[in-house]
Design a binder for these strands. Structure first.
Lengths: 149, 149
DNA sequence: CTAAGTGCAAAGCATTTGCAGGCTT
DNA sequence: AAGCCTGCAAATGCTTTGCACTTAG
C-alpha cells in the first residue's frame, strides 16, 4: 500500500468514525505512514514540526492515541523505552535492539500460537498475543565489536 | 523450590557475586519470593515496610534492579503499566489482564520459536524471545459481564 | 577499615490533563 | 452554530539521582 492509498484510507476511516480530518491529524498520520521505522512520539513531533511549525507535542500524543483507537496504527512498548508507533496495524512480531532501542518488523511463516490458550489460567480470555525478539541489530553489533577491539 | 531453598540460593548468589547481604536485600527478596503473583515495586515496598518499617522506596527499586542483574528475578513491563517483578527467573511467557493489569504465568509445552531468527533483519543477533498474551482474567471477565448485565 | 548500600529529598522523563479559544462539519 | 480539536502550561506518576551517613565483610 503506497502513501496516497494510505492517506485516502485515513480520511475514509475518519469520516466513517465521525472524526474531523484536521491538519494536525493528517500531518501526523502522513509522517508516520511515510516512514519504515518505528518512531517515538517525539521523533514524530520533530518530523511534523518541520511541515507544521505550530503543532504541539501534546497534539502529537493525542493524535497518535486516536490513530491507535481508529485501528490505523499500533503502539509498541517495551521495558524502559519510550513508546514507538507503527502505521502497519496488522498483528506482527517485532524485534527490538537492546542497544539503540530501535524496533524492526519481521514476518513469520508458520508461527502457530494456536495451542497457547490451553495452557493459560482457567478462564483467561485471550484477545491477542505479542511476540518480541530482543537482541542486537546489525548496526549496534558492529559498533560493539569495534569497541571490544 | 520452597522459600528456604530460595533464601539460601539468594545468599549464595550474593556471596558468589561479592555483594553484601543486607537486611533490606534479604527482606525484598523474601517478599518477592514468597508470593505467587507479580507485584509492582510499590506493592513490594508496602509488603516489606511492614517487616522493616524504615526501608525507603528508593531502596526497594534499587534492590529489585540488583536482583534482576543477579539473575534472581525478572522484570515484566508492558504498555502503560508499572513494572512488575517475578522471582521465577527462568524464561517463560506471561499473560496480562487488560483490565486489572495483573500478570499470570503459564507454561508452554511445545513452544518452538526455533525458526524465527531466520526471518529477522539480516545480521540481527537474537538474545531472547518474549511472548505475552493479553486478554481478560477470570476475575475481570466476571466483573465485566456483570456490568453488561 | 573500606567499599558498597541506604535514606532522604529533589530531579527526571515521558505522558496526561484542565482550560480557553479555534477549526471542521 | 455545535462539538470536537488544539495549544499552552502545569500536573502526574513512576523511577532515578546526588549526597551524606551507615553497614557488611
Amino acid at each position: 500500500m503506497d502513501l496516497q492509498e494510505r492517506m485516502k484510507r485515513f480520511e475514509e476511516t475518519c469520516r466513517r468514525q465521525g472524526l474531523p480530518v484536521t491538519v494536525q491529524r493528517r500531518a501526523v498520520y502522513e509522517a508516520l505512514a511515510s516512514r519504515k521505522d518505528h518512531p517515538t512520539a517525539d521523533e514524530l513531533y520533530d518530523a511534523v514540526s518541520r511541515r507544521l511549525p505550530g503543532i504541539s507535542r501534546t497534539t502529537v500524543y493525542r493524535v497518535l492515541e486516536t490513530l491507535v483507537k481508529m485501528g490505523l496504527a499500533i503502539k509498541v512498548d517495551h521495558p524502559g523505552a519510550r513508546s514507538r508507533f507503527d502505521a502497519n496495524a496488522t498483528d506482527h512480531p517485532h524485534a527490538v535492539c537492546l542497544a539503540c532501542e530501535r524496533v524492526f518488523d519481521f514476518e513469520v511463516r508458520d508461527f502457530d500460537l494456536g495451542d497457547i490458550p490451553e495452557q493459560l489460567p482457567d478462564g483467561f480470555q485471550v484477545t491477542g498475543v505479542t511476540v518480541v525478539v530482543h537482541g542486537y541489530c546489525p548496526f549496534c553489533r558492529a559498533a560493539l565489536e569495534k569497541n571490544r577491539g
